[in-house]
Design a binder for these strands. Structure first.
Lengths: 215, 215
DNA sequence: CCACGTACCTACTGGCCAGTAAGCCTACTG
DNA sequence: CAGTAGGCTTACTGGCCAGTAGGTACGTGG
């Protein structure tokens, strides 16, 4: 059923809680992404979600709770996207990495707001938020580290796998962040750029050697 | 001359403007770094600077002005540190890069608050702040791109120098950011890690080949 | 058709904080 | 010593916003 509110806008009425929660989370991600945590107001979020403020409090709790819920949902989405990408690659480590990177940048490109909330906003706030983030990052690093350990059992690789994974994950996060401000690139191009950088190294790249996706 | 204020603390009196401005900027960097732009209050900044709030407004202007002044000062410091590092290297591009990275991570390690304000806070706020940041990043990217162009005149290198420089700068920023949360590493170790990653690439690293600083 | 629960609202409060008004104190200058 | 300029303060205001009190509609099972 539908009604016209004071401003004459049509507003959907009496939807089930599940639907409203999704609307609210969508709106919150959008507003947190554009304004930042502190500058975002619950009034604006409720307005974008097309619902009144008390409903936001009834369903998702305080502003902190709401923000944490945003982070959790978006982090889960992202990790699922990456895992799906990696799992559809074969067993060549470079190809696995390539698919993982493509899935990652694909996600960031498609859900820019999600990424902005996850990386820029959450890491700028301290406390419990950053914790959620660190958990996600830890999972990503584990994934990459396991992948790198597959490539070789030389001592050097074993010794530095964790650190290198952290560096790669960091580089990926940062490149995604950079990409937010340079939207002219395609997801594949950004992914290829990072793949070349970390797999070949400048030392080879300047000699004209490049990594190429197979087939 | 010195007096005791109401709380019995000793407070320096009637210092020249120049000194007060430095105190205020130092305090502002510290508070912005720890609280974030919005959560930082001018009251707290003035308290940390050991001066009254109207003096902050008299000398540095509004909260926005103050934040912009912080970014400008810290960005200048950082770029000077990097330039000094690079200029004391010889003409081998890898060594120049190595010195630049060491200077960069040395700065971040020594002035963590500065880095936090520069990267985390400034990039989380939109508008004029991010602009200051983009300027600094552009200068850094130009520096690195020029350095990379020195390594070779192959077409591949020329074509991608800017993009690769952007990726490297992004990776460096991100690794520095990561380092904020992993203070157990030394600046040199973090710099070496990134140097290896970008110069050798995983493809070589897993075979046990590593880049070594000369001498 | 009544009772009860759930969806939903308007309209407020209390606190925090950016920014300011209005002037005091001290050092120097003539 | 009179004048003045700049360093410095206390004590306020006005607005914004998180969070809430206290309701009104709507539907459904008995």
């Amino acid at each position: 059923m539908r009604t016209n509110d004071a401003a004459g806008r049509v507003r959907a009425k009496r939807l089930p809680r599940e639907v409203r929660e999704r609307q609210i989370l969508d709106a919150a991600v959008e507003v947190f992404s554009q304004r930042g945590y502190h500058a975002a107001s619950m009034d604006e979020i409720s307005e974008v979600a097309d619902i009144s403020k008390p409903m936001v409090y009834a369903y998702l709790g305080s502003k902190e709770d709401l923000f944490a819920a945003c982070i959790r949902r978006e982090a889960t989405r992202l990790m699922e996207a990456i895992a799906a990408g990696v799992s559809e690659a074969g067993d060549r480590p470079d190809v696995q990495l390539w698919h993982g990177l493509r899935a990652f940048f694909g996600f960031v490109g498609e859900y820019r707001d999600s990424w902005r909330v996850l990386h820029r906003q959450a890491s700028a706030q301290g406390g419990p938020f950053a914790q959620e983030l660190l958990d996600m990052r830890r999972r990503a690093i584990s994934l990459v580290a396991a992948l790198l350990l597959n490539t070789s059992d030389s001592d050097a690789a074993t010794l530095h796998a964790d650190a290198m994974a952290a560096a790669l994950v960091g580089a990926g996060e940062s490149l995604a962040d950079w990409w937010l401000d340079h939207p002219e690139e395609s997801a594949g191009a950004v992914a290829a750029r990072l793949m070349n950088l970390v797999w070949m190294g400048f030392g080879n790249l300047v000699d004209g050697q490049m990594w190429q996706p197979p087939k």
